[in-house]
Amino acid sequence: MLALDRVGKTYPNGVHALSRFSAEIKLGEIIAIIGGSGCGKSTLLRAIAGLDRATSGTVTLDAATITAPHAKIGIIFQEPRLLPWLSVADNIGFGLSDLPADARREKVTRALVRVGLADKANAWPRELSGGQAQRVAIARALVPQPEVLLLDEPFSALDAFTRRDLQDHLLDLWADTRPTLILVTHDVDEAVMLADRVLVMRPRPGRLFEEIAINLARPRDRNSPHFDNFKRRVLTALDRSLDRNVPDSEAAANAGEAMWW
């Protein structure tokens, strides 16, 4: 289980990007984090990845506190970030350097087939289209079999058709080993399509605003009325999260505490 306990981040320049974010995420859950710009989504993800340290609060995976990149946590960025001097196959195998060569080759080959790029094994990254490159990035993050996979707006640079294709593909790959997925997005459709729970955040400082459980069986039908229903709920929450007059759930809880005292 991944536990976020009052995670906060203030940058050295004084920007308060994230405030007291708490959540508990079970193994195999798919979480979408959605919110307007500047609500600390990426900050939160980088703290979970161990790329940046939170200034307050803790991130714990099982028993380990995360302060630096961890073997069981992988991340896929908005850009593929492939290493241009390695072939597609070597890029996918980048995180497997501890394995003996033939075990690595076997895993890479299987991953290449799994993301539909078996014929591109020896291609250079520059020869790939945007969608293909992002599929290589997904394979690279998945082959070390992380328990938690973080995705930072992974499909936002792609056209609508490729995006849908990759969303379906991602669910497919997820079903293989069922890691925890934490997906930062600003695409409501994507959040409702993929997630078990959608966490809506509100900006300045970034914090949790509302949590919406998506109780829809998979595979989900984008055209069903239930799907639309959940989309509308997320959209409404997003609208309210940007409205300064609405108190957020955390403030309400604090108010409750005050009354209890």
């Binding site: 990845a49 790329l51 630096a68 990149p69 961890h70 073997a71 992988g74 991340i75 960025f77 850009e79 970030r81 290493l83 980048f94 995180g95 070390p144």
Partner: peptide, 11 residues
């Protein structure tokens, strides 16, 4: 920096 971050992620 983005490429260096890939190296950091893979520790």
């Amino acid at each position: 920096r983005k490429i260096v971050e890939v190296g950091r992620i893979f520790r």
